[in-house]
Design a binder for these strands. Structure first.
Lengths: 416, 416
DNA sequence: TCCATTAGTTTGATGACTGAACGAATTAGT
DNA sequence: ACTAATTCGTTCAGTCATCAAACTAATGGA
């Protein structure tokens, strides 16, 4: 867990690891005194003092006052994560918008933006340029001005080579093999944000991180986040770490085969989960007369989903039937996840959220019916509480997480 | 990867981590000189010298001679993993036998035993007593005598709480909630093996480790091992680490739902993988007149599988059909694994191995047809080359692995 | 023979943690 | 009010593993 990151361990490594441990401990048990931190980490009081002093210098931790309880002995100085200085920025590129979210160390959302942008027709290069603009703009915003940045992350609905920061294949955007981080780094050269740590990842993965850090299931070490956008993707967090697989394809839950001779899927096969419980299928059955011929994409989607919810609310038979069958298939897919991964929670995100009241009951029933473990291995199935821009926030939180786990890119030098 | 294991990092921690790094480097590039190790780890020559001296003292590494190549400069002293001292012992409990395997640091099998024992009717306590006997016997064997032990592991076909060393539920043995490690530790107290690090894990997990370290797919970081015993289980190794899930249920691939109204499975549901491609189903279709009424278990299984292979070889229609359909269903399950986990290899173990010539072609075809990634994400599907006692060897190798990764329980103190 | 080159060891310095002792701040008891 | 007991945090010397650089060792080539 601690993970002095790869490579030989020297003095810096040990220091960084311990800084991470102390930071995490303070986050978990704040507000608390140095003495408590020492006791619960096993480090010496002396070491903790030194480490805390360092963290205070860097603006990660602050002293908030003395212990109020009336106990024998000198009262301790209370420590808390300092939410007033550092900030992490998360960007999310989607088919027709760029979402921005800035999060402080206390995981509070400091700023949130929604920028209209047609990423699919603009192409990757233009999008990178726009991302640069947005980033510079946001960083200069009065809310963030003069606050040091941890880094910036970008969520893309695509297959990503995260270590390299490359977008391998983004079908909905029409991008292939675009080295996004490399381009962004180049574009930011010379600007005030030069050298900022940049992170690129898949929207489902970052959605999972957002749930892990910010949702009401926070701190659940083994969870799966299901995106309900045009497709269905999964972000899998096992033991607090993202599962990526050998080539980054892990979590392509949308195309697991569920029904032998099922309906034709966009991928060319039959009976994929996406063809049974994808938005497209739900909408075509729930509000058939409103759905155009071609594939449903972009901003129209939200409207159609809302209409589906209205009709279900009103008791419309077609809408209810569509949601019931979709929920059941989703439940079978969840059962598969449960049998293979045994997560403690599966979170439904994206457009599944507004439809959750009708999807969840059949989904839970089917999941329970097809899980091997008696009670589904104790797995909860819940709608996300984070809204549509979960991936943007998740990206920002992933950066905060990197600080805590000691895999921190670089906690900024003394800001004072 | 290095992973100064949890808890605060001190001097010992950093030392152990670096010892692990050097050990692993030597294993990967042996035979090699200290200078090469220094260059490829990033550590100083001085540090490497110190670490290597330590490893030699502990009997993990030995010098084998000078560099033979004729090059300018002083020739280096070649280092290799020392396979002649330390040994790890792996035990495997199964329905009707206990398998033993001892492996040296070079991953060579030093000793292998097969002990008849009816674990299901003897009960857990008697089995633990027998394991103790076997362990003491093996440790006293001339082949192992005077060689220091890394530890002993026990593979059980069951749901395991590995950190605790407890067998949660072993349906085929009829055990529930048996604290195996605790009992073994107690039973070994007073014997020469007192204090020996003990490890308990699931047979599929340890099979995966065996493939990772010893199979012809060695060093594949992301692989899945499928056991073909009475049931079908999966050991999942992601990024070189075992996937366990929230409560140890991960890898219950035998009961993922594949067919809506499929045949009744032993678990009470319909259409599970096990009911479509389990040994029981294959045998009932391939050699119907030889299979008794009740569930097939124990030693009879091997015979029936061999007969099935013979008939398939001879072109028997029923046998071929049974294997073809089972292979196809297996392939669909593999496709699900590939879509979710994106492993670089799936290994078929247990009784799947003798049947592989007939199972593999339809399996590969179905897997390719139902994977989202173009070429199955580059996933290879191969039969295991390790035979039936893979789990025993895997357990021993897991201990060796623990040494390499620096998560080593305790490399023994100076043996000299 | 002498030099260039590479291998491995020795030596002193640095940095980070530890342990014990100390000063600080507060409550409990007389 | 004053002392004892406690608990908090800091200071200071001590330990230990790494690092950098100098040094010895062994070989090939001029």
């Amino acid at each position: 867990m601690v993970g002095v990151s790869d490579g030989p361990a020297g003095f810096q490594a040990i220091r960084e690891a311990n800084l991470g441990i102390v930071l995490r401990t303070i986050r978990q048990t704040a507000p608390c005194s140095r003495a408590v931190v020492a006791a619960s980490t096993g480090l010496t009081k002396a070491t903790v003092s030194s480490l805390v002093a360092d963290l205070i210098d860097r603006g990660l931790v602050c002293e908030t006052g003395l212990v109020t309880e009336r106990r024998v002995g000198r009262p301790g100085m209370l420590l808390t994560i300092d939410g007033s200085t550092l900030v992490a920025i998360g960007l999310e590129v989607n088919v027709d918008y760029i979402a921005v979210s800035a999060v402080d160390l206390l995981e509070r959302e400091v700023l949130s933006r929604h920028v209209e942008f047609d990423a699919s027709s603009a192409g990757p290069e233009a999008c990178a340029a726009r991302l640069r603009e947005v980033l510079l703009e946001v960083a200069a915003d009065p809310l963030l001005r003069d606050r040091p940045l941890v880094g910036a992350s970008t969520a893309v609905p695509a297959l990503i080579d995260a270590p390299a920061g490359t977008v391998t294949n983004a079908p909905n955007l029409g991008w292939r093999d675009f080295p996004l981080r490399e381009r962004l780094t180049a574009l930011l050269a010379g600007s005030p944000l030069e050298g900022l740590p940049l992170l690129v990842d898949n929207d489902a993965n970052l959605g999972a991180v957002a749930e892990y850090r910010g949702g009401h299931l926070a701190r659940t070490l083994d969870l799966v986040y299901l995106t309900g956008e045009v497709g269905i993707g999964a972000g899998v967090l096992m033991n607090g770490e993202l599962l990526r697989g050998a080539s980054g394809f892990a979590g392509e839950v949308g195309h697991i085969p569920l029904l032998g001779n099922g309906p034709l899927c966009a991928c060319g096969r039959r009976g994929c989960l996406e063809s049974l419980a994808g938005m497209d299928t739900i909408l075509r059955r729930a509000v058939p007369e409103l759905v155009p011929e071609g594939p449903v994409r972009g901003s129209g989607l939200g409207e159609l989903v809302a209409e589906t919810a209205r009709r279900a609310e009103a008791g419309d038979a077609a809408a209810l039937a569509a949601l019931r069958t979709a929920g059941t298939w989703l439940g079978r897919a969840v059962a598969t996840l449960v049998n293979l991964l045994n997560p403690s929670a599966v979170v439904l995100g994206g457009y599944f959220v507004p439809l959750a009241p009708w999807l969840l009951p059949p989904c839970r029933a089917a999941a329970a019916a097809h899980s091997f473990a008696p009670d589904g291995g104790g797995c909860r199935i819940e709608p996300s509480a984070l809204g549509l821009s979960a991936a943007a926030r998740g990206g920002a939180m992933a950066l905060i997480d990197a600080l805590d786990t000691g895999a921190l890119p670089l906690p900024p030098a003394t800001a004072a």
